[in-house]
Design a protein around this nucleic acid. Structure first.
Length: 130
DNA sequence: CGTGTGACCGGCG
DNA sequence: ACGCCGGCCACAC
């Protein structure tokens, strides 16, 4: 999992799945999510783009579905859809937990949507140097 | 090994 | 502005 990931820089990753059994789409997603700075948030699409599968943002979201089983804990509350909407709040222990966690980080949430999402948006493919 | 599904996204009517 | 539909890909059954 310590691999530098980046599918685009790792053309063999797909066929090397069996070879590089360490590789895991989940692990990559988790790695990125863990690097999201406190008080910032990003979107599934941004992560997907960063991982090279930008047309498959669904995969990122789906990966998050198993996030609560992953260790250490994943700050999944910092990941929302492109509108800044907390679409995955029902996947937390309580539907309000996601919003509460965001508020703890000074992120304002209104009607299940992050206020000024554009402002606090954190784009891994831009902010994250590789 | 085939099929379904998903915390999405962008395009089109 | 709003809703529908197709695509894309990893993973569980």
């Amino acid at each position: 999992m310590k691999k530098k990931i980046l599918a685009k820089n790792n053309p063999e990753k797909e066929t090397a799945k069996s070879t590089v059994k360490e590789y895991s789409f989940f692990a990559d997603v988790y790695d990125v999510v863990r690097q999201i700075p406190k008080g910032r948030a990003t979107s599934y699409g941004a992560i997907a783009t960063y991982l090279g599968t930008k047309l498959s943002a669904r995969m990122v979201g789906w990966a998050m579905n198993a996030a609560h089983t992953a260790r250490p804990k994943i700050p999944a509350h910092r990941v929302v859809n492109r509108n800044g909407m907390l679409t995955g709040r029902f996947h937390f222990s309580t539907p309000t937990l996601m919003e509460e966690l965001l508020k703890k980080e000074k992120i304002l949430v209104e009607k299940d949507t992050i206020v000024d999402f554009k402002k606090i948006f954190w784009d891994p493919s831009k902010e994250l140097v590789l």
